[in-house]
Amino acid sequence: MAKFEKKRGKTAPAISTASLPDIIFMLLFFFMTVTVMRNSELKVDVNIPEATELTKLEKKSLVNFIFIGVPKLPFQKVRGTSPQLQLGDKFADIEEIPIFLEKHRIKVPEKQRAMIISSLKIDKDVTMGIVADVKDQLRKSGQLKVNYSAKKRAGDKYK
C-alpha cells in the first residue's frame, strides 16, 4: 500500500498544454469559415416583420440586399423622415437599382447568375408605395427571385 502512495505522490499531474494551440486553431478555423463580414452599415431603421412560412437564404454570395426604412437620426436632417432606399452602404434612388444589381451580378460566376436572390429588408411601418416601385424596378431588371426578409414568429396566428 505504501508503495502505491509513494508513486502517486511523485508524478506531479502537469497538464500538457502542447495541444492547446491545436484546439484554438480548430475553433479559429470554425469561426473563420462561418464569418460573414458585415459589409454594409445600416443608415435606415429596419425592423422587419414577422412571418411563419420562411425560407432560409443559403448562399450569401448569391444574395444582394435592399433596405427600405426611415433614415436614422443623424441622417434625418438631410434625408427627411420619409422612408428611403439604401443600397449597399449608401442612400440611393429607386432608379439606381438596375446598376446596383448589375454590379452584384458581375461578381457572381456566370453559371450561378440565375440563382441570385434579392433580399428585401423592409421596415414594418413602410407603406407599400415605395415597395411597389422597388418591385417594378426589380421586374424591369429581370431580378425576379425576391425574398421578403422576416423573422420567425413563435405563434401560429395573428393576435
Binding site: V36, M37, L54, K60, R139, V146, N147
Partner: peptide
Amino acid sequence: TTTMDQDKGLLVKLPPW
C-alpha cells in the same frame, strides 16, 4: 466579427416585366 443571424424570409417569384 461573426454574425450568426441567418437570413430568412418569404421567397417570392415576381412576374416578368
